[in-house]
Structures are given as C-alpha cells and as structure tokens.
C-alpha cells in the first residue's frame, strides 16, 4: 500500500505537480524575455526591413505615448509621419547596432542613413512594453560628424 502511494506521489511530482523556479529568471527575467520578444521583431520589421505600417500595427499600442518632439502621440500619427518620411527617403537604410533589454524597457542603438552619400544618423530608441505591445517611445538622434578625435565610428 505504502509503496503504491509513494510511487504515485513520485509520478505526480515528475509529471509537473512541481513548479520549478529557475534562479535567474523569476518575475524580472520573464518580463525581460517578454519585452525582447516584442522589441526585437519590431526593430527587424520596422528598421531592418523598412516595413513601417506592418511593424506598427503588429507591435505598437494604439495610444502609444510619443516623446520624439517631431511627432504626435498615438500609433496612427506615427504611421502617417513615418510613411511620409519613408516615401521621401526611398533609399534609406536602418541598421540595429545593439539591443539592450531590461524588464519592460529596451534601448536600440541604430545607424540610419536617409540618402546615399549623406552622413549617417546615430539614434537610440527607447521603448516601454506593456501587455505585449510597445506603449511608449523616447529617442535621441544625432548626425555623425565628418571628423573624429578617436579612431572608432560612433557605433
């Protein structure tokens, strides 16, 4: 009788009666993973592949809060602004240099070129993710200068 009970208990434990908690991916770790799972594909679609509308419709919240001083709040305003921008710069390039993800925030360091032959722009986009969508955006944008005091690119 006892043997059967112990065997049943062991089987039940192995079958997932236990919830195992990984030491380094408790609540903070899983939020970071969830944020990365939104921001990485968003940047691939929007930046690398230049698919503005698809990227925004899929990954941005409708009432997205905008901190870029040249843009209005909201996803639809961002799409309109960026589609116009894309149309004016059909040969633009956008390359993510590094992506830093931490809890519900992410920073993307980007090298963008509007027109071939022009100096590239250095950009950091910061995103806050909430309920599986990008809810807030900040950025800092700087044209890269001709000369540098060090032998490294801005990237």
């Amino acid at each position: 009788m006892k043997k059967a009970l112990i065997a049943a208990a062991a089987a039940s434990a192995l079958a997932g009666g236990c919830v195992s908690v990984e030491m380094n991916s408790g609540p903070a770790g899983s939020t970071t993973q969830a944020t990365r799972a939104v921001v990485a594909p968003f940047m691939e679609m929007f930046c690398t592949r230049g698919q503005v509308r698809a990227a925004f419709m899929r990954y941005m919240a409708e009432d997205y809060i905008q901190h870029n001083p040249n843009a209005l709040d909201g996803r639809d305003a961002a799409i309109a602004h960026l589609e116009a921008f894309a149309a004016a710069n059909p040969e633009r390039t956008c390359e993510v240099q590094r992506l830093i993800v931490d809890g519900n925030l992410a920073a993307a360091h980007v090298r963008a070129m509007l027109k071939p032959g022009e100096r590239p722009l250095a950009i950091v986009d910061i995103f806050r993710v909430e309920n599986g969508r990008i809810a807030e955006h900040w950025d800092v944008v700087q044209p890269t200068p001709e000369a540098s005091a060090n032998p490294h690119p801005m990237f």
């Binding site: 870029n68 001083p69 040249n70 709040d73 950091v124 800092v140 944008v141 801005m154």
Partner: peptide, 15 residues
C-alpha cells in the same frame, strides 16, 4: 548620442 532639446514639440510629453 546627444540631441539639443528643441524649443517646440508636437506633443506634451517632454523628451
């Protein structure tokens, strides 16, 4: 990356 804060903004959220 460094950007001067402009005089005007199209939104009310600060940079």
């Amino acid at each position: 990356v460094i950007q001067p804060v402009p005089e005007t903004s199209r939104n009310n959220n600060t940079m």
